[in-house]
Structures are given as structure tokens and as C-alpha cells.
Design a protein around this nucleic acid. Structure first.
Length: 706
DNA sequence: AGCACGCCGACT
DNA sequence: GTCGGCGTGCTC
């Protein structure tokens, strides 16, 4: 062995490179000895299905002649991977799954290539376009390509693959503009879609039940222009509404619904129909954001502020970011719609990436209910109202509404952790150095920033100068229960995360629901809605608290009849609060603009790009030490993370029980996000390769930085 | 992460 | 002279 073996190996490699490789490399598993290689393109470049950042590259394998026809780009294969190799002798290695990415004439790998072990399926599921998208998403989030591909390509179901997909129907006739006439630039947007252009718009939908039909018309217009279309909605119920609207418009056969409800096999069958080009239009929840729609002409997203658009599997991509990448990569139009508007969408408008698609003031006023506020100062003079712990105005609105139809009562979800706010004006307490949220630490209740860890002795409210703090309190569910007692003759129905009510009939009833679970009323809409405990929503330490409160309120209030038909909404919240004012004026766009301006001033996302690095103190320090950051980057912390509470369910990303973890935040100005992600990825890869202690968790665009 | 290679000390 | 400890480095 030794020297002569080495020379022989190089000879073989040269032979392989020179594509005269009729004989297999000598050192290969027994079963392949003397098996011939494919004559043309004998090398397969393979993405191995291992989400390890330091292995985040492609590997070359030899293609046996017997697999030549089947080992096409995009198919699933099994390969031996992981065993060490010495002196050209190769034994074993574990069988793992992967995807053929490319067939090549040669390899730049200096050693001997192992052969593909098996072609699992001839279905080309990872197309070049999908691979390009996955790679862009992985780069954006400092994640591993294999992790993203796992989100994008559903697991194989052999039975579904055996069935042929029905032939694609011809494009439908273009639909009329329908409700889009209610928006000044609506018909022009549809016309651009119909011409096959790629207009991008942030759409603030009018309140009421028409948005699913409008969304469907936009999708159908792209289809009629001979292109594909994709709509992502936050949950199965919203997706079902869009699905029903599309079926009403086009009939069946033109689109598929991709949601978790269908079950794995049916879902894979539908996904295959899309992948094979038999269906050109997809409606679904967030996993559908990767659906390989052919000749994509439109990506649509509904309610991008909903947290459900954030995938919780690594690297936690957000549907808005993925669809925005697709719109650019695939030259598709984009329609980001909702009843409210996120600061991120506002930024897309501000930077000119998207235009604005909103109705005129009069149209908004005609469609929206009357919104009234009840502040802390209002007293409950009516005894019945006092019994329900409700201000008079709220009690009256419920009573009058119940005379005409169902009344919605929105109560906040439990599970959020309120922190500190000014006792006088309730502005959340923030750090003077980095504007992070303040928290009381330890028994001595030292005030400390949860982001940068600096103490804040002698805190004073930036708004009103107040010096006293209060914890923000919850407790509205009981109010809703007592509400039922205040109206004993009325049926009370509840809808929440575990028991979501689909629809409610158009007759008097009290419908108590948590945000996002509101039943859609049959008929003209709720007669009234009561939005309880604005303090709980607004007092959250999250920097999105105001935006999120307004989003929840608008989604509920949009189910109420217009003011002209008696629709009334009462919100319990201080009338001076920005989110409350924006609800009263029904001005989500203005609210989002002001939110964005504030966040820009404070150096918050989405104007700044942030990443969180968490793990043991040593690991975090180690990573920060080896990180080559852009000069403009700013490191906040690290600070200790709160230890897991016994009551709260553990989510991925939480520290393991009993371990104390730290977290550092890194922020960069606009335009440096890609640099930051690349730096994080290479630092992480280096640490893992050199085995420098335990790994750290890296999150780009962390959600819980409040 | 696995997993194999390889260079060191206790055994046949 | 050989077995096997776990430190080190690669995975086509």
C-alpha cells in the first residue's frame, strides 16, 4: 500500500476526470466492484439531507450505469456518507437520503468518488428553481440548505407518486374586477396582472366579507394570463375561505388547497400535481410558500403580521420574506394584503418595492363599523354593568347589539408575559441606551434591560416623566364569563385555540373568542363587537405590541356590520393610545407608517436587521469572539435568558431545563443583513468544525426580542 | 454528529 | 507482537 496506492488513486481520478472511466474506481463497496459507470455525465452532485451548517455544501458521487437513466437532477437518492476514508480504501458509511442536484462530466473532488447507493424515486422533486429559492432562504437566515429543502419538499409518499396527475386545464377566462373597483388603483393592478406584468402592491383590504373573493380574482387573473399563482394565508380557516372563493369563481380543477388538514398523502398528491405542472394555482398555509408553481406570475400573502407566517422549524423563515424573494427571483407579481398593515409591509411601500393598494377614505367609512373607546376614567354607573365589571358604554353596546344580531366579545389569549410600564401613562419602560424592554430582576427588583443588560437606576418615563412602574395585568376572560351572567337570556358561545367555532348564525348570541379564532358570522356581520382589555394587548413588552393589538382589533372589527347598518365596536383602551386612535379612524396604513418611523429612529427591525445568538455563556462568548462582523454591526449583551418556567410549554429555542443560557443581539443597518447572516454562518461552521464547545443557536429576525 | 484512523500503554 | 484506550479530523 502506501506510496504506490497513492499514485494509483491519482491515476484513477485522472481517468475519471478524463471521462474514460469505464471501470469503477478500485476502492468502493464490494457490491459495486467492477460495476460500470454511466458513460455520459458519470458524476452526480448531491445535496445530502443533513442540516449541519459545517457540511452545508454539495458532494459528488459516481453514477453507476444501471442508474444512469433514473439519476436525473431533482430526484431523491440514497448515498453512503460519513465513514472515514484512508489510503483510498472505503468501507461502509451510513446510508442517508439526498437529492441529485446536477449531473456532471467531472468532479473537482480530489479523491475517489463513492457511487450512488440507490435512486429512491424518479420524481424530480427538487427543481433548479426550487433549489435556488432554498439556497437564497438559507443564506438570508444563516441556515443550512438541507434544512430549508426539508421545509420545501414534503416527505415522499410512494402511493401518491404512483398515481398520474390529471392533465392541466386550459387557462380560465379572466374574471371581472369584482370588488377591486372599490379601490382606486385596483382595476389598474388587475390589468397589469392580466398583461403578464409583475406589479407589487401592499393591499389594505376594506372591512367586510369580500376580501377572499378579491384575493381569488387576483389569482384568477394571473392564471388567465397563462401564469401560475400562489396565495399563503395564516391558518386553515383563512385558507379555506380563499379556497371557497376561488372555487366559486373558477370551479374545481384550477387550483389546490395545501394545508395540514388534508393529511400527508393527500397533501403530497396535491403537491405533486403542482410540481408536475398539472395545477397552476396554490392556496395554502405557510408551508405552501415553497410550492413549486410553474411559471409563477403572482405571489399573494394574507395578513403578514400574523405570527403563524413564521415557521418554527430551522431556520424559521417568514412567509413574507420567502414570497418577496420568490417575486424577485421568479419575476412574479406580489400582493401582500390584510385588514391591517405590518411595519414590514409599510417598509416595502416606503422603499418603493411595492405600491400601495388602499381604498379612499369615504369607501373605508362606508364599510367600517362605528368604533368607540372606553378609557380607564369611565365609570360603570349602571348596576348591571358594574356587576359585569364593564363600563356603561360597553354594556350598552352589547345590549343594543343583541337586539339585532350576534355580538362578538374578544378576550386576550393567556400565555403572554407582561412586563413593566409607567404606572401613570402606561408607556412600556425601555432602556435609555438601546431602547430594549426593562424587567425587574431578582428579589431586590433591580431594573435591568433585557437586551443589553445595563441597569436602569432612577428610571423615569420618557413620555410623562413618571417614576413609578406597574406590572401590566390580565384578567379579561372572567369579565367575559360574567358578561354572560349580565345577559342571562342570551346564548353564550366561545371560540378559542382548542375549540374554534367555524361560523355563527345571524341571530342574537354572545360570541366570546380569543384573537384569531373569531367565527365568521353568517349574514351581514356581527351587530357589535366588544374588544376587551386593550391594556393586556398593548402592555406586552414586545416591540410589536401596538401593531399586534391593532391587527387583532381590526380582524375582529372587520366582521362587524358597517356603521350605516348599526355596526358598533367598543374597545377598552386609552383613547390617547396610538393603536386605539388608529382603530377609531380605521387607519392601519397611517399606524404602520408611524410605527415604521419610530422603529427606524430607535434602530429596531425592520429598518435594522437583527440576529440573536443564544446558548451557554461560554458558547455565546466563543461565537462572538470568532465572529467577523461588518463594521456597522452593534452587539447588545449578552444577557442571561430567563430560566424555563414550569407552567409554560417549552418551545424550540428555549434553553434545556436546568441550564442557564445567555443571549446576545446583533443589529446591522439596512443593506447589511446578508453580510451579517454570512458572518454568523461561517463563525458557526468554524466552531462546529473545530469542536469549540457546545453549539449556539442563531436566529435571524428573532421574534421574541421584546 | 458519527465514525474510523492512529499512536500510546498492558496484555499474551 | 497485538489489543484497544480515546484524541483528531473527515465526510464525495
Amino acid at each position: 500500500m502506501g506510496g504506490s496506492e497513492r499514485a494509483g488513486r491519482e491515476g484513477e481520478q485522472l481517468a475519471l476526470v478524463g471521462q474514460a472511466a469505464r471501470t469503477a474506481p478500485r476502492a468502493r463497496p464490494r457490491t459495486w466492484r467492477n460495476a460500470p459507470l454511466a458513460e455520459r455525465l458519470p458524476v452526480a452532485r448531491v445535496l445530502v439531507d443533513k442540516g449541519l451548517v459545517h457540511l452545508d455544501r454539495l458532494f459528488d458521487y459516481a453514477v453507476p450505469a444501471a442508474m444512469d437513466a433514473e439519476a436525473r437532477p431533482g430526484v431523491r437518492v440514497r448515498v453512503r456518507f460519513g465513514a472515514g476514508q484512508r489510503d483510498g480504501r472505503r468501507e461502509g458509511g451510513r446510508l442517508i437520503n439526498g437529492f441529485v442536484v446536477e449531473r456532471r462530466a467531472d468532479s473537482d473532488f480530489p479523491g475517489v468518488l463513492a457511487p450512488l447507493a440507490q435512486v429512491l424515486s424518479t420524481e424530480p422533486v427538487l427543481s433548479p428553481g426550487l433549489l435556488r429559492l432554498c439556497r437564497a432562504v438559507a443564506d438570508r437566515y444563516a441556515g443550512a440548505l438541507a434544512d430549508v429543502v426539508q421545509l420545501a419538499v414534503p416527505p415522499r409518499m410512494a402511493r401518491a407518486e404512483r398515481q398520474p396527475s390529471p392533465p392541466a386545464p386550459p387557462p380560465p377566462a379572466p374574471p371581472g374586477p369584482g370588488g377591486w373597483s372599490r379601490y382606486p388603483s385596483g382595476p389598474a393592478y388587475l390589468a397589469a396582472l392580466a398583461r403578464g406584468e409583475a406589479p407589487r402592491a401592499v393591499w389594505t383590504a376594506l372591512p367586510g366579507p369580500h376580501w377572499p373573493d378579491e384575493l381569488a380574482r387576483a389569482l384568477a387573473t394571473a392564471l388567465a394570463a397563462g401564469r401560475g399563482a400562489l396565495a399563503v394565508l395564516p391558518d386553515g380557516r383563512a385558507a379555506a375561505r380563499a379556497d371557497a372563493a376561488l372555487t366559486a369563481l373558477l370551479g374545481p380543477g384550477h387550483h389546490v388547497l395545501l394545508t395540514a388538514d388534508a393529511g400527508p398523502e393527500a397533501r403530497y398528491r396535491r403537491w405533486l400535481a403542482v410540481s408536475r405542472g398539472a395545477v397552476r394555482c396554490v392556496v395554502g398555509t405557510r408551508a405552501a410558500m415553497f410550492a413549486p408553481v410553474a411559471r409563477l406570475g403572482l405571489v399573494a400573502l394574507w395578513d403578514d403580521g400574523d405570527a403563524a407566517h413564521h415557521d418554527d422549524r430551522a431556520p424559521q423563515p417568514h412567509a413574507r420574506e420567502v414570497l418577496a424573494l420568490r417575486a424577485v427571483q421568479e419575476g412574479a407579481a406580489a400582493l401582500f394584503g390584510g385588514l391591517s398593515r405590518s411595519a414590514e409591509s409599510a417598509r416595502l411601500v416606503e422603499t418603493g418595492w411595492a405600491g400601495e393598494l388602499a381604498a379612499a377614505r369615504e369607501a373605508v367609512r362606508a364599510a367600517a363599523p362605528l368604533v368607540r373607546t372606553v378609557g380607564d376614567g369611565d365609570q360603570a354607573r349602571d348596576p348591571a354593568a358594574r356587576a359585569a365589571r364593564l363600563p356603561t358604554l360597553a354594556w350598552q353596546a352589547v345590549r343594543e347589539g343583541l337586539a339585532r344580531g350576534p355580538v362578538l366579545v374578544q378576550v386576550p389569549r393567556r400565555g403572554y408575559v407582561p412586563r413593566l410600564a409607567c404606572a401613570r401613562c402606561r408607556t412600556p419602560a425601555r432602556c435609555a441606551h438601546c431602547h430594549g424592554p426593562l424587567a425587574a430582576v431578582g428579589a431586590a427588583e433591580v431594573l435591568r434591560c433585557a437586551w443589553c443588560g445595563q441597569d436602569a437606576p432612577g428610571w423615569h418615563c420618557a413620555e410623562c416623566g413618571g417614576a413609578r412602574l406597574r406590572a401590566v395585568v390580565v384578567g379579561a376572560r372572567r369579565t367575559a364569563e360574567e358578561l354572560g351572567r349580565a345577559f342571562p337570556a342570551v346564548q353564550v358561545r366561545t371560540s378559542g385555540r382548542d375549540h374554534v367555532l367555524g361560523a355563527v348564525p345571524d341571530r342574537p348570541a354572545l360570541v366570546v373568542s380569543t384573537p384569531g379564532a373569531e367565527p365568521v358570522p353568517e349574514g351581514p356581520g356581527y351587530a357589535a363587537a366588544l374588544l376587551l382589555d386593550g391594556w393586556a394587548l398593548l402592555g406586552r413588552p414586545d416591540l410589536r405590541a401596538g401593531e399586534e393589538a391593532l391587527r387583532c382589533w381590526l380582524n375582529a372589527a372587520a366582521l362587524v356590520r358597517p356603521q350605516a347598518e348599526g355596526g358598533t365596536v367598543v374597545v377598552l383602551g386609552e383613547p390617547t393610545e396610538r393603536a386605539v386612535q388608529s382603530l377609531v379612524r380605521w387607519d392601519p396604513a397611517g399606524h404602520a407608517r408611524r410605527e415604521l418611523a419610530d422603529r427606524s429612529f430607535l434602530g429596531f427591525p425592520p429598518v435594522a436587521r437583527m440576529a440573536a445568538v443564544s446558548g451557554s455563556p461560554e458558547a455565546v462568548a466563543g461565537l462572538l469572539g470568532s465572529l467577523r462582523l461588518p463594521a456597522s454591526a452593534e452587539v447588545l449583551g449578552p444577557v442571561p435568558l430567563p430560566v424555563a418556567e414550569p407552567g409554560r410549554p417549552r418551545r424550540p429555542g428555549d434553553p434545556p431545563a436546568g441550564e442557564r443560557w445567555e443571549r446576545a443581539l446583533i443589529r446591522v443597518p439596512p443593506g447589511h443583513g446578508a453580510e451579517l447572516a454570512a458572518a454568523l454562518k461561517s463563525a458557526q461552521a468554524g466552531r462546529l468544525a473545530r469542536r469549540e464547545g457546545p453549539p449556539v443557536r442563531i436566529r435571524v429576525d428573532p421574534q421574541d426580542i421584546g
